[in-house]
Amino acid sequence: MGTVLALGHVIGVAIALWTFNARAGGSFWHGVPPALILISPEWFLVSAGKALGWEITLAVWLLRGQPSSPWGVRRGSRSGRISRLSPAERAAREREMRPA
C-alpha cells in the first residue's frame, strides 16, 4: 500500500508541474524546456515547491475558489520569461482567454 501511495505522489508531482507550466502560458503537450528554467528560476523554484506539496496546493487552490495563475509571460515580452503578473495583467489575460 505504501508503494501505491508513493507512486501516486510522484505521478501527482509530474502532473502538477505539467499543469503549472500550462497555466503560466506554456504548452500542455511539451515539457518545460531547460531554457525556460534558466530564464525564469523563481517561477521554477516556486512551481517545484508547490508540486512537491501538490496535495496542499490543490486544497488551497480549491478553497480560494480556483483563481487564475499569478504567473505568466508579460504581453510583448521578447524573452518569454515567466514572471509574476500584476492584477491588471492577470485580468487582461483572463479577458483574452474567455470565449467570445
Rank of each mutant, 00 (worst) to 15 (best):
G2R: 07
V4T: 08
L5H: 02
L5F: 10
L5A: 09
A6N: 04
A6E: 07
G8Y: 10
G8K: 08
G8S: 11
H9C: 09
H9R: 13
H9S: 06
V10I: 15
V10T: 11
I11N: 09
I11S: 15
A14R: 03
A14C: 10
A16G: 05
L17H: 00
W18H: 09
T19M: 12
T19D: 04
F20I: 04
R23E: 15
A24D: 05
G25V: 00
G26W: 00
S27D: 12
F28Q: 08
W29A: 13
G31N: 08
P34E: 09
P34R: 14
P34C: 08
P34G: 11
A35E: 11
A35W: 13
A35H: 10
L36C: 05
I37S: 11
I37T: 06
L38G: 15
L38S: 08
I39V: 12
I39T: 12
S40H: 12
E42K: 13
W43H: 06
F44G: 09
F44A: 15
L45R: 11
L45F: 14
S47D: 04
A48P: 01
G49R: 07
L52D: 07
G53I: 15
G53A: 14
W54K: 06
E55S: 12
E55T: 11
T57L: 00
T57S: 13
L58C: 04
L58R: 06
A59D: 01
A59C: 14
V60L: 12
V60P: 00
V60W: 01
V60F: 05
L62Y: 04
L62S: 07
L63A: 15
R64Q: 13
G65A: 12
G65D: 00
Q66D: 03
Q66T: 09
P67A: 10
P70F: 04
V73N: 01
V73R: 00
V73Q: 02
R74P: 00
R75A: 14
R75K: 15
G76I: 10
G76E: 02
S77T: 07
S79Q: 07
S79G: 11
S79I: 07
G80W: 03
G80A: 08
G80F: 01
L85P: 02
S86T: 15
S86M: 03
S86I: 02
P87T: 09
A88M: 10
A91T: 07
A91I: 00
A92E: 10
A92K: 01
A92L: 09
R93T: 00
E94S: 05
R95W: 08
R95G: 08
E96T: 08
E96F: 00
E96R: 07
E96N: 06
M97K: 07
M97G: 06
M97L: 15
R98G: 06
R98A: 15
R98K: 14
A100H: 06
A100E: 11
A100F: 05
